[in-house]
């Protein structure tokens, strides 16, 4: 089996790409997808550790992370639809006022 270190490095690379996506993209939907990518990278590290230490707790935690991600996406996309309704754009640069 491949050393756990490789999985951790891959997880770090994916996490960094997600962080870069949040920083460079202006489309709010793609920023959301980048956040999902980061959550996924963290999950990969969790599962790698589960395999290393032979304890199942990490897999349970991945399960909870998925539930939280689902909730986050539901609320976040609802927010996006609400913002689009008033601003007619989901460019994050346009979201610079609290009301209206």
């Amino acid at each position: 089996m491949v050393p756990v270190l490789y999985y951790l490095v891959l997880s770090a690379i994916l996490f960094t790409m997600g962080a870069m996506g949040v920083l460079i993209r202006r489309n709010a939907l793609i920023i959301f997808m980048s956040i999902e990518l980061m959550l996924n990278a963290a999950n990969l590290a969790f599962v790698a550790f589960t395999r290393t230490f032979e304890k199942l707790d990490g897999q349970i935690f991945v399960f909870f992370v998925m539930a939280v991600a689902a909730a986050e996406v539901a609320v976040g996309l609802a927010l996006m639809v609400a913002i689009f309704r008033t601003k007619h754009s989901i460019d994050v640069d346009q979201m610079n006022s609290l009301k209206g």
Binding site: M1, V2, Y7, L10, E36, N40, N43, L44, V47, A48, T50, R51, Q59, V62, F63, M66, A69, A70
Partner: peptide, 18 residues
């Protein structure tokens, strides 16, 4: 990757949920 790491349940949850 999850399948390779002996996590079949998480792997299938990943496919269905994500």
């Amino acid at each position: 990757f999850y399948l390779l790491l002996n996590a079949p349940f998480i792997a299938l949850t990943q496919i269905t949920v994500y």
